[in-house]
Design a protein around this nucleic acid. Structure first.
Lengths: 240, 240
DNA sequence: CGAAATCTTGATAACGTTCAATATTCGTGG
DNA sequence: CCACGAATATTGAACGTTATCAAGATTTCG
């Protein structure tokens, strides 16, 4: 089906925030539902669509050949994923829970983009936003302790899916672990430690997925034993 | 100074490969030299220029407040860095050795970009290339052992700065460690282990920075003790 | 030339993983 | 709708990989 995004009131508000100048573009678009745990697209598959979460949650990840998994991002309502700017997906995407997505044919986007600098600029803006997230994640994975990672994860989620002060996590400990480069046991232990310190509490939710942050400042405290201590800096750009 | 890149034979060949459609753009450009160890720009500073390495090597990194450092990338001759698509740099950049860079005023790029969709597309292409690199780095930092990281580093460098089969590393063990999320001692030990296994050898270079890969296949061997073993999957894409 | 930086190697320790057991809940099929 | 197997989460104990601390050898470069 073809939808003019600028005239469909149900779609425009959702997409405008992310797609910006796409608002006057004529692109082919549709909705789809994926059951909990099902694959939306696979790594290295042709990237025919880009996706936006309407409802639910999605994980995108890479696998090593021996089964080790690294989740690159969680995608929540409003988020766009599968935007690879190339012919093939670089991640696998799976629905974490029953999920509804909007999909847009990449071909139609590119057709429009040829004559619409604003759309390319929007793609650049979204890609840059991805890049920023991934860059911060590298800092997390390369430098931080288990406690710091779990705390950072909570703060990230706190900013993204809090409703009435409660974080309702759609994903399990295993997913969190694979996002943070830890094991699920370590994630569980760090949650426990943060709870004992009074930085958070669990609501009497059966699976401990409903969390309230009690002390956000406590979560930002650094924790490194003394791993590295580089301090000096030089400042003298010399002119050629 | 203003240079029309499409008519300056000394500049065009270098930039065309990376900047694509910029070749017919009129942008302000110049060259600069930075001494070994000096800062080119700092994190959160205004991003007034984008840079291309002419000669030398550059590291870009983020710091935590207690001094922990994560190097995001090494930039070698031909590479463009500082392309943040925003008003501020997200990394600090330092010359690893005496380095010559070309710099291009961002303002002039943006002026041209307004009327040149091809240039924006080039920016998108370069940003996507950055993204791909960082995504792969996340997989490395989140999932792999020390030996695998050092091996992956060598293979990356092997594809980028090999001359006559010899990798001549411009950076020290500390930089490599901060790139791989390890300590310099561990990097040193892994080099030693790989040498003992016959996968590489050092040239009698005083600082062990000249390396020859003897067995690239040996370097790609996986090494995980048995950290995670997720196996079931419908179809199985994998990066080995 | 000499102080600082770099790299290696060894000994010890710690953080996080691995292995294991339990309790609870989910969700699918009878 | 209940029951039962599978999935999820927590916790404990032991282990292992990598960090930390330390010393020494060599080289760089100011």
């Amino acid at each position: 089906m073809f939808i003019n995004l600028s005239t469909d009131p149900n779609i425009k508000p959702r997409l405008v925030g992310e797609l910006g100048d796409l608002s006057h573009a004529q692109v082919s678009s549709g909705e789809f539902k994926y059951g909990r745990g099902t694959e939306i697209f696979g790594e290295a598959e042709p990237a025919d669509y880009i996706y936006q979460v309407i409802e639910g949650a999605v994980r995108t990840y890479k696998l090593l050949s021996d089964g080790r998994r690294q989740i690159g991002a969680f995608h929540l309502p409003g988020d766009i994923f599968g935007l690879d700017n190339g012919d093939f997906h670089r991640f696998t995407a799976e629905a974490i829970v029953d999920t509804t997505v909007r999909l847009v044919k990449r071909q139609s986007l590119e057709r429009v983009a040829k004559s619409d600098p604003g759309l390319i600029l929007s793609l650049l803006t979204m890609t840059t936003a991805n890049l920023r997230h991934v860059e911060n994640h590298i800092l997390l994975l390369g430098c931080t302790t288990a406690r710091e990672r779990v705390a950072a994860f909570l703060l990230e989620m706190n900013g993204r899916l809090t409703s009435a002060g409660v974080i309702a996590l759609p994903m399990g400990r295993r997913d969190i672990a694979d996002y943070l480069g830890l094991t699920l046991e370590t994630v569980s232990r760090m949650f426990g430690a943060l709870e004992r310190k009074g930085h958070l509490k669990f609501l009497d939710d059966s699976r401990q997925r409903q969390i309230v942050i009690l002390n956000a400042a406590g979560l930002t405290e650094l924790d490194a034993p003394r791993k590295h201590r580089r301090l000096k800096r030089k400042h003298t750009p010399s002119v050629g």
